[in-house]
Design a protein around this nucleic acid. Structure first.
Length: 429
RNA sequence: CGGGGAGUAGCGCAGCCUGGUAGCGCAUCUGUUUUGGGAACAGAGGGUCGCAGGUUCAAAUCCUGUCUCCCCGACCA
């Protein structure tokens, strides 16, 4: 992508009502634009990050036999009356009515709808287990939206739902999702901490949240700090249940509070095994070898649109964003300093095309701007590797490689540029 | 919902107290000179002063109402 053809409306000054670092940087780097309280447009750069996250999540869900569907944003009140949540969900639910005065709502979550879908099609235990997911906009009318997309009213969420024959199989599915979540966050470059949670409005007994620890986080979690450097990937269900980490709500109810340290964090994922709560209210039975049984269900959410903000909150410096390479909107930021020097520009064009041919996501700053503006935009946008072509090329045929995270800069002869690039972006060891 | 703050050019703000017909910085456009860390100079464009009503010869400014946004708190997959 050429910078001149990619709309990135960067700002020098921060909007006055912005309080959180990530919110400020998302606005100034032209990722998002506020439409009204808690509702945002995603501009090209922001949407590109979102798509990186979506792609990774889709890939890993598909790999695990979880079927992608797309449910509507608008739901009928009917199914919510069946679960009795139409009355209990409260003002967070945005209620609307159509021209015939039928009560509709903008979905805050989809347990009811997926249960109705399951009930219609799943008739036999031979159809279980069954897992679905969708990635869709949700709306929750938060009392006080804040911090940009961090606590938005309209937001993008991945929610998955599972159907199992009984509790044992349900727990096994739950355990699979637990591990899938660890894998997803790991592949997004996010050091995640799983914590035991209460299940709240959704209902049920088994629930975990997935948190990113940052000092500016809105959540509080309590954990044994030995867990900070632990990998959780190979845990059994029993080990998962005995993890010494808790949400603040859960923490209040536990007995042994020794060795638990408090951290502030951002919640990025939440999984529940709620059992027969909805299959029961929907009278959802299937035929099994033992006669009719109610399926055990679970739901599994990831706050997709919150992830970019959380990662920026976690990784930035005074000059801007520092993307981890896993979800950086581009892998390489090629900067042409001497746009008027034909040798320099020809080299950049050629290098740009070679990078693209290798399917490496590159942004090429070909704009007719002063070096200072190009550097500061590059730092603000935060691509992990900057490749700078300017005077050093004109004089010595050298190109500068600059690592965004520590600003370490080295010069490389032109013949070794591609090799070095592959090495530094991790495409070649 | 309680408490507080703010709406003036795309963004950041001044002007309001003490009424006289709107200004600064950044950004944008033109020209010249510049060009390895947000350039300099010269010029230009851009505003229903959130909205509605009232007071007045005259309202961004005073009064009333209203809408919106932000902050703190309570709340929250």
């Amino acid at each position: 992508m050429k910078f001149s053809n990619f709309f990135i409306p960067t700002l020098k000054e921060s909007p006055s009502d912005v309080k959180m670092r990530s919110h400020d940087l998302m606005i100034r780097s032209g990722m998002i634009r506020q439409e009204t309280s808690g509702i945002y447009s995603w501009m090209p750069l922001g949407f590109k990050v979102l798509k990186k996250i979506i792609d990774k999540i889709e890939l890993l869900h598909d790999d695990n036999g979880i079927n992608q569907i797309l449910m509507p944003t608008i739901q009928s009140s009917d199914i919510w009356r069946i679960s009795n949540r139409y009355d209990t969900y409260g003002k967070e639910m945005l209620r609307i009515s159509d021209r015939n005065n039928k009560d509709l709502l903008y979905g805050p979550t989809n347990e009811e709808m997926i249960t109705a879908i399951g009930k219609q099609y799943i008739k036999s235990y031979k159809n279980l287990p069954r897992k679905f997911y969708h990635i869709q906009t949700k709306f929750r009318d938060e009392i006080r939206p804040r911090f940009g997309v961090m606590r938005a009213r309209e937001f993008l969420m991945k929610d998955a739902y599972s159907f199992d024959i009984d509790n044992v199989n349900g727990e096994s599915t739950y355990c699979d999702f637990f591990k899938l979540y660890l894998k997803i966050f790991s592949q997004l470059g996010i050091p995640i901490i799983p914590v035991r949670a209460l299940s709240g409005e959704i209902g049920g007994k088994l629930s975990h949240e997935f948190h990113l620890i940052v000092s500016s986080g809105e959540s509080e979690i309590f954990l044994d700090n030995k867990l900070l450097n632990q990998s959780f990937g190979s845990l059994t269900l029993n080990q998962i249940l005995n993890l010494n980490s808790y949400t603040d709500e859960y923490f209040k109810n536990i007995e042994n509070k020794k060795n638990l340290e408090k951290f502030t964090s951002i919640e990025l994922g939440h999984i529940f095994l709620f059992g027969t709560k909805y299959s029961s209210s929907f009278n959802f039975y299937i035929d099994s070898e033992k006669g009719k049984v109610m399926p055990y269900m679970g739901s599994y959410g990831i706050g997709i649109s919150r992830i970019p903000a959380a990662v920026i909150e976690f990784s930035n410096d005074k000059d801007g964003i520092i993307w981890p390479k896993e979800l950086s909107p581009f892998s390489v930021h090629l900067i042409n300093i001497n746009i008027d020097d034909s040798e320099c520009s020809e080299f950049c064009e050629k290098l740009y095309n070679e990078i693209k041919e290798r399917n490496i996501d590159v942004i090429y700053d070909d704009r007719n701007e002063r070096p200072g503006k190009k550097f500061s935009d590059a730092d603000l946008i935060g691509i992990p590797l900057q490749i700078i072509c300017g005077n050093a090329y004109s004089k010595n045929r050298e190109i500068s490689f600059l690592k965004r995270f520590n600003k370490e800069q080295i010069n490389i002869g032109e013949e070794r540029v591609m090799d070095k690039l592959l090495e530094m972006t991790g495409y070649k060891k």
